[in-house]
């Protein structure tokens, strides 16, 4: 079975929010829209977003590191949000594993949002139905688009390629290889929700330098020869 998902590389995410704006733009004007924006230019703007980028600081100053953390529905393989829905509006697609909400059935009871430990669902303040990331279901299933464009809007927008998209059940897909070879992990594994989305950890590149790599042991050109000479023949005189 196919399980589409995102793999997010925290090592290269620079926190530019390009995925956030491109997600909002695509989805507010498409099938899942409109996504409300209240008071957008005021002091306290409010609105529905499928994807948000948060920032965490690791360590204590001055030994700190900044982690930008994009956050959206993880399309869990055991989605706890689905069985609690009283109307059946929340469902997981059998063919590709994407978790979706049928906006025509949702009664806006918010119960599913209680049953998602990740806070991935948001009730739209105007349409009063539950909304969440659809993995751009209208793009990725649109056969009229070219292969390159048949990806979620956030993936196409990311300037650092921090977002990979593919089938995590196919062992040879780009996402599976990335998870396998680069330490991909799931959020809050303790709940058994089996999130399909994975995150790739921050990685530091370190090189090790030995002291004798800085001082040459054999020194044919005497460049660092500290001996003081008083007219005797040197190696240079003999050599050439």
């Amino acid at each position: 079975m196919t399980q589409l998902a995102l793999v997010i590389d925290l090592n290269v995410c620079v926190g530019c929010h390009a995925c956030v704006t491109s997600c909002k733009e695509w989805n507010t004007s498409g099938w899942a829209g409109p996504m409300v924006d209240q008071n957008p230019y005021g002091a306290s703007p409010n609105g529905t977003f499928f994807n948000r980028v948060q920032t965490f600081e690791v360590g204590t100053f001055p030994d700190t590191e900044t982690v930008h953390f994009p956050k959206s529905c993880l399309h869990c393989e055991e989605p706890p949000c689905v069985p609690v829905c009283p109307t059946g509006a929340s469902y997981k697609r059998a063919d590709n594993g994407v978790v979706l909400v049928d906006y025509d059935k949702c009664i806006g009871c918010k119960y599913c949002s209680w049953a998602c430990p990740y806070g991935a669902r948001e009730l739209d303040a105007e349409q009063k139905v539950m909304k969440k990331c659809t993995l751009c279901i209208d793009r990725i299933t649109d056969a009229k688009l070219s292969e390159r464009d048949r990806k979620p809007a956030c993936v196409l927008a990311c300037p650092t390629s921090a977002r990979l998209f593919g089938d995590v059940h196919d062992p040879d897909s780009e996402v599976s290889v990335a998870i396998r070879e680069r330490g991909g992990y799931q959020l809050m594994p303790e709940w058994g929700t089996k999130p399909a989305n994975h995150y790739l950890p921050r990685q530091k590149t370190r090189i090790h330098i030995d002291p004798d790599e800085l001082t040459r042991v054999d020194n044919p050109l005497r460049k660092e020869d500290l001996t003081s000479y008083t007219g005797e023949e040197t190696l240079d005189d003999v050599a050439w």
Binding site: P45, T55, F56, V58, T66, L187, P189, P201
Partner: peptide, 30 residues
């Protein structure tokens, strides 16, 4: 769950600097 398992970073000092919304969201109200 802890903030460590929430974002998957193994460190005792994790401080949030941005929540991804200026004026709050459904998540900060509900």
């Amino acid at each position: 769950s802890t903030v460590q398992t929430a974002i998957g970073v193994r460190h005792t000092a994790l401080t949030q600097r941005a929540q991804g919304a200026t004026g709050g969201s459904f998540n900060t109200r509900e």
